[in-house]
Design a protein around this nucleic acid. Structure first.
Lengths: 242, 242
DNA sequence: AAGTGGTCTAGACCACTCT
DNA sequence: GAGTGGTCTAGACCACTTG
């Protein structure tokens, strides 16, 4: 009975195997889109039965870290595509197309209280502030305020934002090596301040829906704080309870 | 190789076993809270290996139909407790207590278009309309409009609503034999009409959050349509994306 | 045809809950 | 101690994808 190094005591074998694989993925041994070795190889390498290794891989798949494809292999999942923000809103009808982006401002600034807390950094740490407008059919529909932690996302503090394209997360991945893997959003309701209202072409004080987002990388570090504002009339969201 | 009756062709054995068990539960052979026979017995009865039956039971557990408890057994889950409506709102702070209910109206009426469609019944079918106010610390916080399908929920058309207690779903279970197992909710924002505003003690036209709910029984039949209105200021909801 | 994950078997032993 | 679900093994065969 070999009792190889369990990552945590009191854990089942397959959970330990999953944790080990998770670490290897986070460490970059397998990049996004890469295939893992096949089950047989992994099981043999760890000296464990095939079924046990399968269980570990299934666990990682449940957690969204890998994706299993019959006949092809087990692959490390890509990060979040980005811009699923619009799923909360119904602007016009017809096929939902990709929203455009217009950067309104970009500054390096000390982090204010709320973003700092969300990012898990001390207030006043260096941050990158971005304001942008999301557009659908050339019409402004969302006003966003973003804060990014600065040593880490420094690559975005330089260069012409006009060349960035419409999605932030692919940019974060390419330029900063930051892969967004999970996000938590909080929905609320308020009234538009003058500046945002003007940008959206709505009257000041107009009711708006507010979506605050924290985005996390593979290691669980928060790498973005964002607040998006849109017309409350257009807001709609569906949940299922069980 | 016995190939006993699969509930559906082209399905894996464990999926078929799960479907069979599901049917038996829906048919009432095992009521909410009852224990299923143990794995060994079920596997033997179906002439299948233990692991395969386990897989079927795990599937039902994933779907929320049963709950597995180590050392005790596998149990049919109770229906939704009810009143998780308040999870969308933060009224005051401190420990969230159970909301009170005051029935404002109850009528038997032909179903209007929207509730009829949600319930999967023709417009004009007999329905039971209920309006009620949810209260927290004696203060009104939610205004609800409910439609129930009528032959089925007839027991609620009689008797004194003042004796109903604060939760609808336990009532539906006891008096009508209707077990709510799943619900779908859609969130939107709007403005309060005069009547609702008055009931909630807010000015007419005040911004409000609106939660529409369809509740389903074990068989997947819609058994309730509901619209709840509350102060938009108090609204807050959190989602996780992966 | 070779390689992958998906299903199924038949058994052993462990961890937990109840009486 | 008896009974339950949870873990693990070692193997067989199937279904799907790709060259």
């Amino acid at each position: 009975m070999p009792r190889p190094a369990a990552t945590e005591p009191g854990q089942s074998r397959y959970a330990a195997l999953a944790a080990g694989l998770r670490q290897r993925i986070v460490a970059g041994e397998f990049g996004p889109g890469d295939a893992l070795p096949n089950e047989q190889a992994l099981a043999q390498a760890e000296g464990v039965a095939l079924g046990t290794m399968r269980r570990a891989l299934d666990l990682l798949a449940e957690q969204g870290l890998v994706q299993r494809v019959q006949g092809r292999g087990t692959f490390v999942r890509q990060g979040l595509a980005g811009a699923p923000m619009l799923r909360f809103f119904r602007f016009g009808q017809g096929p939902q197309q990709l929203p455009g982006s217009r950067i309104l401002a970009r500054h390096t600034r000390p982090l204010p209280a709320e973003p700092a807390q969300a990012l898990g950094l001390p207030v006043g740490s260096p941050g990158l502030l971005i304001k942008r407008l999301r557009l659908l059919n050339q019409r402004p529909c969302l006003h966003e305020t973003l804060w990014l932690p600065l040593p880490r996302c420094a690559a975005l503090a330089e260069g012409d934002p006009a060349l960035w394209g419409d999605l932030l997360y692919p940019l974060l991945a390419q330029r900063c090596g930051v892969l967004v893997h999970r996000a938590v959003e909080t929905i609320g309701f308020g009234a538009l301040a003058a500046a945002e209202a003007r940008a959206l072409g709505l009257p000041a004080g107009h009711p708006c829906a507010q979506v605050q987002r924290q985005a996390f990388d593979l290691a669980g570090q928060c790498v973005e704080w964002r607040r998006s504002l849109g017309d409350a009339q257009a807001f709609q969201y569906t949940v299922t309870l069980t």
